[in-house]
């Protein structure tokens, strides 16, 4: 698995809650375009990571957060793996396009949403399949046999937000 990290803009404050980004729109575009579209297209998920509240670093013991703990996430992953084993067709990365499209694995509304999204958001072939796989993984975490439109829309929301080639 490839995981990367990048600042959203030269100053790093684009989208920050309490600091104003001082970059000009052109600078942001230029900065984001330094990574080519074809390379970015190969990343399935883009997640914004806001600056944490600095006060939390000075608290005693575990940091207080509303997010699930690593242990909870690990449990969720192992539940999902068990579910995939029970489901029988294998992990989403091993499924072919035909299998991903099969109506036993995705419901009608979800396929419809995917079709519209692919056209309207001008998705590449690679990213359509990427979104299908990601939707499948999200459904597995949800222990659902069939991918629903909620899973597809969550997968779509992880698409790149960068300004390349739009």
């Amino acid at each position: 698995m490839l995981v990367g990290a990048a600042n959203p803009c030269p100053c790093g404050y684009l989208g920050d809650q309490s600091y104003n980004c001082r970059c000009l729109p052109g600078q942001i575009e230029q900065y984001q375009n330094r990574i080519g579209g074809p390379l970015l297209d190969r990343f399935d998920m883009f997640v914004a990571v806001p600056r944490p509240n600095s006060d939390r670093f000075f608290e005693k013991g575990e940091m207080q957060t509303t997010q699930p703990s690593s242990q909870m996430l690990a449990d969720q992953v192992s539940t999902a793996r068990d579910f995939v084993a029970k489901r029988g067709q294998g992990f989403s990365r091993d499924l072919s396009r035909e299998e991903l499209c099969d109506s036993s694995l995705i419901d009608e509304k979800a396929s419809q949403l995917l079709k519209i999204a692919a056209r309207k958001l001008k998705l590449s072939g690679r990213s359509i399949v990427g979104i299908m796989r990601l939707s499948r993984t999200i459904a597995d975490l949800d222990t659902c046999d069939r991918v629903s439109s909620a899973h597809v829309s969550e997968a779509l929301s992880y698409r790149k937000t960068w300004s390349n080639h739009d």
Partner: peptide, 24 residues
């Protein structure tokens, strides 16, 4: 968040909203 994202994605696909470079 999942509910919100589902609705936003529908709007995005319909061209009613768009996601900016900062994720908003």
């Amino acid at each position: 968040v999942v509910e919100v994202v589902e609705i936003l994605t529908y709007f995005e696909v319909q061209g009613k909203v768009m996601r900016r470079a900062d994720g908003r």
